[in-house]
């Protein structure tokens, strides 16, 4: 399910005094099975960009190709596109409305015309994927905790069996435990073979999980490459109001002090290994 975006520009409220060009001349291609982190400061256009990928927003100019087909050309069913490319909105718990958790998760597959039996199976499967207790299915979604409702909402998208999963700031507003659980879920999901686009302004999460990073700044795609490459440019990220991952900041500081450590580490473990190596080189390893 490759997605290709060409010269994509979107202007909100075109032709009025308050028109805003939210994204400008964006180009990229996403292949099957990728795990992409989309980062950028608030207002940089992340949400606008991803809403184009499943046809919720229409480009002001440019094209979005899914499987090589322009999704806005005649005869393309946007409903089908939306089934293949699942999009979990920011604060998805605000979209639940059914009386029971089961019904809410089943809303998507029912809309797409699956039989009752298929729907049941897909709801169960989705619950398993996000680690949702079977017992909750008969409860009202309005009784659940924040982290739980969010998982219900994500399950609601997974139940339509998308090939690509896009999540807009899935951890925003969760406590550390809820956040870790959601991120673990997402990692597992990617391992089942679907492509994932994770939108976030938390660099630590993205650095730990994503293989490829795209950076938006004021509506322009200013970096797109392997996570290591992008995150090693700590100064650049700071210049566009992004906080580089903590480990990257640490490594930069050590380098400033003359330590010969790499600055493209992504996890705490890697950072530890680098520091130990440097200490050994300096001959203080005996102390550890």
């Amino acid at each position: 399910m490759p997605i290709e975006v060409r010269n994509l520009t979107h202007t909100y409220m075109q032709g009025t005094i308050s028109e805003v060009t939210a994204i400008f001349d964006i180009n990229f291609r996403i292949d099957d099975g990728e795990f992409i982190g989309l980062i950028g400061a608030t207002g940089s256009g992340k949400s606008t960009l991803i809403q184009h990928l499943n046809g919720l927003l229409k480009p002001s100019s440019g094209t979005v190709l899914v499987d090589g087909v322009d999704i806005w050309s005649k005869g393309v069913s946007l409903k089908k596109v939306r089934q293949k490319i699942g999009l979990v909105f920011q604060y998805p718990e605000q979209q639940v409305f059914e009386e029971t958790v089961y019904d809410d998760i089943a809303f998507g597959p029912k809309n797409l015309g699956y039989s009752q039996k298929e729907v049941e199976g897909q709801v169960e499967e989705a619950c398993e994927l996000v680690g949702l207790d079977r017992e909750l299915l008969s409860r009202s979604p309005f009784e659940l905790s924040g982290g739980q409702v969010r998982r219900v909402a994500i399950a609601g998208i997974l139940a339509i069996k998308p090939k690509v999963l896009i999540l807009d700031e899935p951890t925003a507003g969760l406590d550390p435990r809820g956040r870790r659980e959601i991120l673990d879920n997402i990692k597992n999901l990617h391992e089942t073979g679907i492509s994932v686009i994770l939108v976030s302004h938390n660099m630590d999460d993205v650095a730990r999980l994503c293989e490829r990073i795209m950076v938006l700044d004021k509506g322009k795609l200013v970096a797109d490459g392997p996570a290591r490459e992008v995150f090693s440019q700590g100064r650049f990220l700071e210049s566009i109001d992004l906080k580089p991952p903590d480990v990257t900041v640490l490594m930069e500081k050590l380098r400033d002090r003359g330590w010969a450590v790499r600055n493209d580490v992504l996890t705490v473990e890697e950072a530890c290994a680098e520091i130990v190596k440097e200490l050994q080189r300096r001959g203080v390893a005996g102390a550890i």
């Binding site: 939306r82 699942g86 999009l87 605000q94 979209q95 998507g108 339509i160």
Partner: peptide, 12 residues
């Protein structure tokens, strides 16, 4: 936003 979120779930 809610409308779009439901459309992402196939709502019409």
């Amino acid at each position: 936003r809610i409308m779009k979120a439901q459309m992402a779930r196939g709502a019409d």
